[in-house]
Write a protein that binds this DNA or RNA. Structure first.
Length: 286
DNA sequence: TAAGATAAGAGGGACAT
DNA sequence: ATGTCAGTCTTATCTTA
């Protein structure tokens, strides 16, 4: 008993309504979140008619008599319209909420218009594919935004996105992976080079050192030792090495903060990069 | 003060059960 | 589906130059 609506004639399933076990409704504070943990269906959106939906039956009238065939077809048409508008409204409500969430996120993150649009497009696709049902709208919206950024090669981190989202990091990364899987998206590999100028600007590092860091990263990539390493950690480390080579003053701490990684990460990467890469070209350079 | 060392824990991928 | 394993990264604390 899952609540499908089925054509009596041919058995075609028109609409199957699944139970939604997750908290619905927006909540931005813990107190709100508590009050939103509900025990039933979301009355306002998934079942906006509170379960008392109009059903139009097509073979008999109110007294149980068979209808004439002209009446029969008229009722069929009405029934179809009734179902369609219901679906329509539900999708619209969903989108309305999702777009609200997305607007807030994009405003906080200063996301340009175009990316905002592609995030919205991704959300619509997810909704159309039925991926939102049973899941949290804000979660999918956030994941859509992150996916749009990744596909556009915009160096924004998941943490930056999560910080302004009402949902947890865990949930968003799970949903992000879901979207990748469902849409068969090949997102470009997160290239450390992308982060160089962002990190360097934040840490106040010269163009010259940036160029050098990019060279280092390209060698690292060619040697295929960057797999499994965090791109921001690599980027910050390359900048650190570059500064070191050029006698430019900086510190692990400053770079670590600018890159959003820990200084320990820089230290460890620094050691392994020196071991695996530097020895091969440090002689040529210095 | 910056950098290094070390330890404990979290989260996620690969792989087997 | 669940557990284990290796590897990465984080936080915290202590030591060293």
């Amino acid at each position: 008993m899952t609540g499908e609506i089925i054509y009596q004639n041919c058995g075609l399933v028109i609409q199957d309504t699944m139970l939604d076990k997750h908290p619905e409704w927006r909540a931005f504070t813990p107190e709100q979140r508590e009050s939103c943990k509900r025990m039933g269906l979301p009355l306002s959106f998934s079942r906006h008619d509170k379960g008392l939906s109009t059903s139009i039956f097509v073979t008999r009238d109110a007294y149980g008599r068979m209808l004439r065939s002209s009446e029969h077809y008229k009722m069929l048409r009405l029934r179809r319209l009734n179902i369609r508008t219901k679906l329509h409204r539900s999708a619209e409500r969903n989108l309305f909420q999702a777009m609200n969430v997305l607007n807030r996120l994009c405003e906080k993150l200063k996301i340009p218009r175009g990316l905002h649009e592609s995030a919205a497009f991704i959300y619509r696709k997810a909704l159309g594919k039925g991926l939102v049902r049973g899941r949290n709208i804000a979660g999918i919206a956030t994941a859509s935004l992150y996916l749009a950024l990744r596909r556009a090669n915009v160096p924004r981190t998941l943490n930056e996105i999560v910080d302004v989202s009402p949902r947890s990091r865990k949930e968003i990364s799970r949903l992000y992976r879901l979207l990748i899987f469902e849409f068969n998206y090949k997102t470009p590999i997160d290239d450390p080079v992308q982060y160089v100028s962002k990190i360097a600007t934040k840490a106040g590092i010269s163009q010259k050192a940036q160029m050098r860091a990019i060279e280092i990263l390209q060698k690292v990539r060619r040697l295929q030792i960057s797999v499994g390493k965090g791109p921001r950690g690599l980027s910050a480390t390359a900048l650190y090495i570059a500064c070191f080579e050029l006698n430019e003053k900086t510190s692990q701490k400053r770079l670590a903060e600018a890159a959003g990684v820990s200084s320990v990460t820089i230290r460890n990467l620094y050691k392994s990069l020196i071991r695996d890469v530097e020895l091969k070209f440090v002689k040529i350079q210095i």
